[in-house]
Design a binder for these strands. Sequence first.
DNA 1: TAGAAAGAGGAACGGTACGG
DNA 2: CCGTACCGTTCCTCTTTCTA
Length: 438
Amino acid sequence: MTPEETPGSQMALALLFDQQPEILKKPVQAIHMAITGGIQSKTQRLAFNAMLKHALEEHARNPGLETETYSISREELMRIIGYSSPNRKHLKEALTQMQKLTVQWDFLRKDGDPMWASCVLLPFVAFDRDKVFYSYAAQIKPMLFDSKIYARLDLRIQRTFRLDPAAALYEWVNRFRTNPSKRTNEMTWTDWRWCIYGEVSETSILNEYKIFKRDKLKPAIKEINEKSDLTIELIENRDGSRSVKYLQFIVEEKQIFRAIPDVDDKGEWEKRLEDLGLSARDRKKILATYPTAVIDAHWKFTMARVSDKSQPAIKSPSAYLKRALEGNFAPDVVEKAPAGGTQDMEAMRDIQTKFTQTRNAEAEAMLSEMLEVDREAVIAEYNAAQDSKVTQVPQDNEKRTSRYMVPLFAWLAKKHWGEPTPQDLFQFALQTGAISLK
DNA sequence: TAGAAAGAGGAACGGTACGG
DNA sequence: CCGTACCGTTCCTCTTTCTA
């Protein structure tokens, strides 16, 4: 069942684990979309995500400002989508082509608002020497920018895929990673083909399931299992007939990404240093000489350098780490204690409260968007974790007042997004304008 | 009802076009 | 030169369905 994992891919995953994530909070309606009248390449898909991420950040910085046209530096765009070729022609062509692609938004909610039924993917794109300008259709902007229901998509992972359908399938299954049932939705195989590949003509050989599976599905599943933080498994449903009718996936998060390792723990560091290839003597010396915070900083420094493709490759990460530690390469790691004063403390608490409220609202939206069976599973899990009966969420829908539900939302938010990290709070404070970088 | 035929899918090949 | 996308082919297995 477990896919073959080469040491190389494991190393790549381990490296990924130590980088800063690049999360796009992508509205689910924009994930559940299908290209009509053509196919979408990986470059286009990633570019759309990169541009959306950029626009969302822009939007968060200036919430009041109604921006018509966004711009992103070409360098940054190319970095996010992993476009390394010096030949810009194809990037330009791919982006220009996006103006011709139309999409069916919110594909899963068939009875949804018909206003978003179909619309051009990117109505406007322009270039100059080092910037790319783009804008969205006015009708879909609220959906893109104000959506409460989103999935966290890690663009670092998505750009490591080489196969088009792998990037597309990953995006779809990633959205179901937190489902208690560990299942995606079930769709006819032609709908899956539509979502992860595009619309095909009547004469295409991809009208045969076995060809689609051979050329698109299987390679995509293989690549996702090898390179991503998820393992997925295909379920085929023949529905009594001879041919495969419906497809579904089992989605599980890989172990390494589930538990945040305790970096203060010497044992954990011992193992990490060993994995890197350091000898027992070196490990002992390093752990005895430097505090873990310093090792951690240099570890991150080393990993960033190792995965930096713009510089010559590092032959031996372990030797590099040693040298980095000896030379104290990493910038200062002294933890900055927050400036004292009760005013600051109160401002901090205020940010924390607002952050919690926002997250709870997001958790509520997520819950309401779940399938009935999944929602009840979540509630059952929550109830099981309650010591006392009075805090349990009642079975009767009518009786589910905020007295019960708000703690549930908080629990759910913590479960899915974890404890807010300092970065989360910092980001949030920046976005809401509570603090500013000057 | 046994055996043939047909349908669906899988495995392992092959090729061309094209871009980095 | 290699990897990806796309398009074929041949031979095989398994299951359903047809038919003598």
